[in-house]
Simulated assay, not measured.
Amino acid sequence: MRIALLFPALLLCAGCVHRAAVVPPMVPGWISPPEAVHAANDDPHRGIRGSFVVTVQAVGEDERRIYLNTERDYRHQLNLTIALDRSLRDALQAQLGLPLEQLHNHRLLVQGTARRVRIDFTPDGRPSGKYYFQTHVDVTDPRQVRLAP
């Protein structure tokens, strides 16, 4: 009788563990860009969740997104990119108290999850089959970003 009750309980617990594994682990303290990149590479599906301390070295944008990079070359292996929708520009500038173009050499604390993102080379808008990886923290709310002390 005990075995009959134990087996469904074990299946239920196994299901709980599987669902819990999808959420990235929260890391205490501040996470540096190299730590974030290495952790995101170690577990590309979950990434790493926490507070990232970054010094902005480059600001870029395309037609949809704004990118704050920790390296001057956004393709650098240890670059951590803070990526946000362009519609958040005004709110983030108000939150930080300065234009995004003036963030060079400013330290930020960013809450979120760093994940490995595949970047496809698309000459003339067509995928070439070549790609590389970046590590991104997606910002969906300006309150995720603040100036570091």
Rank of each mutant, 00 (worst) to 15 (best):
L108M: 04
A91S: 12
L98Y: 06
I119M: 09
D85I: 00
P123D: 01
A83Y: 02
L80Q: 01
V27F: 10
A36H: 04
Q77E: 14
E61C: 08
A114M: 05
V139C: 08
H18C: 07
P25A: 13
F133G: 06
T113W: 05
W30D: 14
I66A: 08
V137A: 03
R19F: 10
L5P: 06
S87K: 08
R19N: 05
R86H: 09
L88T: 08
Q57P: 02
A14C: 10
H106Q: 13
A114T: 01
P28E: 07
I3C: 08
R19D: 06
T122K: 11
G47T: 05
T55V: 06
T81D: 03
A21V: 02
R46Q: 15
S128I: 07
D120N: 09
S87T: 11
L108F: 03
V22L: 15
P99Y: 09
G60Y: 04
I3H: 13
G60Q: 11
E61H: 14
A58V: 09
R49Q: 15
I119P: 00
E63M: 12
V139S: 06
L78K: 08
S128V: 07
G47K: 05
R89M: 11
N69A: 15
D62V: 03
P44V: 02
R143H: 12
R75K: 14
F52L: 04
D42K: 13
R46A: 12
D73H: 11
Q134N: 11
F7I: 15
H106E: 13
L6K: 06
H106I: 15
L96W: 10
S32A: 15
L6H: 07
N41I: 09
I119H: 09
L100P: 11
A36R: 05
G125C: 02
G47V: 06
E71A: 14
Y131I: 04
T55D: 03
P123W: 04
Q134W: 03
E61F: 14
L109M: 08
H106D: 03
N79R: 03
L147C: 03
R143A: 14
V145D: 00
H104T: 13
L147G: 02
V54P: 02
G97V: 01
E61R: 15
I66W: 05
G97P: 00
R146C: 08
N69F: 06
A20G: 08
A14E: 12
Q111I: 00
